[in-house]
Design a protein around this nucleic acid. Structure first.
Lengths: 349, 349
DNA sequence: CTCCACCACTTATCCGGTTCAGTGAATTCT
DNA sequence: AGAATTCACTGAACCGGATAAGTGGTGGAG
């Protein structure tokens, strides 16, 4: 079954290809009567303009690209990326832009994908996640003049737009909250240490701990997976001066940490309080439900998509701050049980 | 910065556009020396063939489409889809096919997306998930003659290739295992009831239960979300003849069910055994870790992508069975505690 | 009544590849 | 040696739209 072209419409309407093009694109140059006739025929035969032909005559590809540079096993469990993708989609679909996805192994391969996509005119712009320090991708994007939006700062992205949330503020708020509950030994299990937002969080965490006189604050680097998060937790909890509260850089590690604590016979939140960064249904599913730093990830993604579309349209976009994460207290945080004091009544079996 | 075209290469090499095209595509018609000279120039100036121009001259778009028809909040937590996407990618990237993604609200919108993509020549084929009974999408795909692979059968897909795993066998194995442990009252919390694979599982579940003389077998329909899964579990557990084992159609609901059981003071696995369909890191993260029906979802996706690429190449592909899920016993299943007998020692706090 | 502006189109060109039908020169065959 | 074939390449058409330039007819202004 041959797919119809404007030539088919032109033949049936008894006009030229050019007239059809004008009519379908709402350009002046055809009478209203003719336009309606042409539109009706296009409807009837189910015409869709060939995107390749359009793109070839100078129009944009009407697609944006996203590369994901994490191992498959991390992607499948992390609710973050799917949330982000849903957010992108909500904006892109409304303007009928397609989203092209590629999973890559390394940042170097990622820039290769950018080069290829851009060279092939396959996409009009890209969304970059997981900003690193002196990120190779930034230079390449600038050099290619490929419209882009970077998520995961704040960082130095030159002329490229970025969108970030105030992670430093969020972690400061969290530490203050835990200290207010009475915690003095607070630890943190972080995400991949070479990501810029991990560094931002780490810096802010240690600053606020120092300012509050918490000298034992420690950050254990991890990689967002449950296994690593569990291992890191075990390492933290076997020490003599074990922390009474742990902040995790994502929900998956927090859930894993919870399981480790329970397996070691520690009561949560009595013996150990837990805070997860990024709230997902996961956090409310487990028992006790986890106190979390909630962000609207889909909205974050939608915001990024809007910025990217603006950049593609040639508008100047800069450094945008999205809504910061805010603390959602649930059952996993409480004042620490005093050593030697009786265990508070637990609703657990 | 203007992106280079074959005309640029032709000028620099002192040959015609046609010669460059032959050289870069490994076609006969140029001498080996010239070919190498042309390839070197292409390398040097960073040439990538414009995919639109290629697609326009009859070549394929080198992209496949995937639509996801589930609400965003389900997508973000379900590890299934990300696993599937990772699997697709591993095959597609190897043959440098792009994956185009779209989140849609309804199956009707989904067929609109197919029509548009195909009409625009944006994609060469699609992967269809969540097969339903008398699925509208099947007819449309056949009518459009759009190459496709359907996941989520087995079902009637006419000439369209499908790939499925033996869910009936897997659930039969699971029930037999639970019965062997001593369970007699087994319930099931299912996924969306209008999905074909849900119906397959339900039918098989009730058949095996009947054949084993389990007359109280009940399936509670749900929707894959944690909230619904938790609610369904609560409903099952408040009855007088509460089940001693529950099988969940996905991991998210199983984790939610676990939380509900613990919150109601039931010991898992002593009072209630839990089996999750689809093993994800989630299942081993919680405490106790969940017995699960393990499938290699990424491999499932990779397999589907291979079939689709074969279909795009015009090869006849039919009805392919992928590896079935197999039971991975973990801590959440055990013989049911006899009513009145002493509770076995629990390692929990 | 003439000239010009305007409308509603048509014609032609372009985008950047692919591909087919030549073309001249070198090589092979008879 | 002359004809036939092969080789290495050129020129042009083509894919399906967008768009600039051109065309004939109409209406109003001068």
């Amino acid at each position: 079954m041959k797919r119809p072209t404007i030539a088919d419409i032109a033949r049936r309407a008894g006009v030229s290809k050019g007239a059809v093009s004008y009519a379908l694109n709402g350009q002046p140059g055809v009478s209203e009567a003719t336009r309606q006739r042409i539109v009706a025929i296009a409807q009837e035969i189910g015409f869709n303009p060939n995107s390749a032909a359009r793109a070839l005559s100078g129009a944009s590809a009407r697609a944006v690209g996203l590369t994901l540079c994490r191992p498959a096993r991390m992607l499948s469990i992390e609710p973050f990326f799917m949330g982000l993708i849903s957010g992108f989609e909500s904006e892109l679909a409304a303007r009928s832009y397609a989203l092209t996805l590629q999973v890559v192994a390394t940042p170097e391969l990622e820039v290769e994908v950018y080069r290829r996509w851009w060279g092939e005119r396959r996409i009009d712009g890209v969304i970059v996640t997981d900003l690193r320090e002196n990120d190779v991708r930034i230079q390449v994007l600038q050099q290619l003049q490929l419209p882009a939006v970077v998520i995961g700062g704040p960082g130095d992205t030159g002329r490229i737009a970025q969108i970030w949330s105030d992670d430093a503020g969020a972690i400061t708020e969290t530490v203050r909250y835990l200290v207010a509950l009475g915690h003095r030994r607070i630890a943190r299990v972080s995400g991949l240490p070479d990501l810029l937002h991990t560094q931002t969080r780490t810096r802010a965490f240690h600053e606020v701990c120092a300012s509050l006189g918490l000298n034992e604050a420690v950050t254990v680097p991890s990689d967002y997976t449950g296994e690593e998060g569990g291992r890191a937790t075990r390492r933290l909890l076997i020490g003599n001066d074990r922390p009474t509260a742990i902040i995790y850089d994502n929900d998956v590690m927090a859930v894993a940490g919870l399981a480790v604590a329970q397996e070691m016979g520690l009561a949560v939140p009595g013996d150990l309080s837990i805070v997860a960064w990024d709230d997902s249904p996961l956090c409310s599913l487990v028992h006790p439900p986890l106190t979390a730093l909630t962000r609207d990830i889909a909205e974050y993604g939608a915001h990024a998509a809007r910025e990217l579309l603006a950049a593609i349209d040639g508008k100047q976009v800069g450094n945008v701050e999205a809504g910061a994460a805010h603390l959602t207290p649930r059952g996993s945080t409480a004042p620490p049980r005093q050593p030697g004091s009786a265990a508070p009544a637990q609703p657990e079996p």
